[in-house]
Simulated scan of single mutants.
Amino acid sequence: MLFVSFQTTQNKNGKGDGKMNNQETLALFGDEADEKFIKGEVLQMIFHNPDNLFSVTRIEVKETNTDWDERDIIVTGVFPKLEPQEVYLFYGKMQEHAKFGQQFKAERFHKEMPQTREGVVAYLSGELFKGIGKKTAENIVAVLGEDAISIMLNDPDRLSEVPKLPKNTADSLLATLRENQGLEHVMIGLNDYGFGPQLSMKIFSSLQTKCT
């Protein structure tokens, strides 16, 4: 955010002439730079309420601008059930719980998708996708590249280009991708546009009601 303050010079009648004098002051304030965040891998979903999406999860900290210096931390907030081993970026604030001590209260979040070929291979060959081993994941990435996930979601027929990939395995892979890109994908998208988790949930619920 940019703030500019200046004092105008005055003419003989005591009125401002709109010109900036040497007392002009320019100040830059980076609000987002001051926002606290924790980036980490999901270790365990401790609690998840499917009705209002209030969740408590344990995160292995990979990066943060808070004073937290321990290996993992409890993150609370309103978000869909998160899959273990996936990496998320949470924005919010530290808070002291009367019983459980310091926690991080997330006000919004963003999913960190794999950015490299190796990362996509590791993601697709993880526990989330049954029947997709490392070799199959490598074949998929060899054909579709590091954008394989978005390609499969937007143009699923491209999976037919992967040699020796059984149709039932491809169908299962796509079904799992779509399932995990449902509520989570919508909420992350709304978060990216500045909507908080509670409002995102209301919007998603409203859309669900209209579609049923």
Rank of each mutant, 00 (worst) to 15 (best):
T25V: 11
L53P: 00
Q181Y: 09
V120H: 13
K19T: 13
V61Q: 02
V87A: 03
A175K: 07
R58D: 09
L128T: 05
D147L: 05
Q23N: 12
I149N: 01
T116V: 00
L159P: 04
D171W: 00
V141N: 08
I73G: 10
D171Y: 00
R58T: 11
Q115M: 06
L207I: 14
A175R: 05
L144K: 02
K134M: 05
L2I: 13
L199P: 03
Q7E: 15
M113W: 15
L190C: 07
T9I: 12
E60P: 03
E63C: 03
F54Q: 07
R108L: 04
V186Y: 05
Y88A: 01
R117H: 04
G189C: 04
M113T: 08
M187L: 12
N180L: 03
T9N: 12
I38H: 02
S55M: 04
N22S: 14
L173M: 12
E86K: 00
K62R: 06
L43K: 14
V143G: 06
R58P: 09
Y91L: 08
V143E: 12
K15N: 12
T25Q: 14
G133N: 04
L165Q: 04
R158I: 07
V75A: 02
T209R: 15
D147M: 08
G182C: 02
I73M: 04
R117K: 15
L165R: 03
K81C: 08
D147A: 10
D17G: 11
G133T: 05
F6D: 04
G189A: 06
P50R: 01
F100A: 12
E86V: 12
P84M: 01
H97M: 04
Q23G: 07
D69F: 00
T176D: 10
F29E: 02
D51K: 08
E32P: 00
A142L: 06
D51H: 09
Q10M: 11
H97Y: 02
Q115I: 00
D192R: 08
E146R: 15
L174G: 13
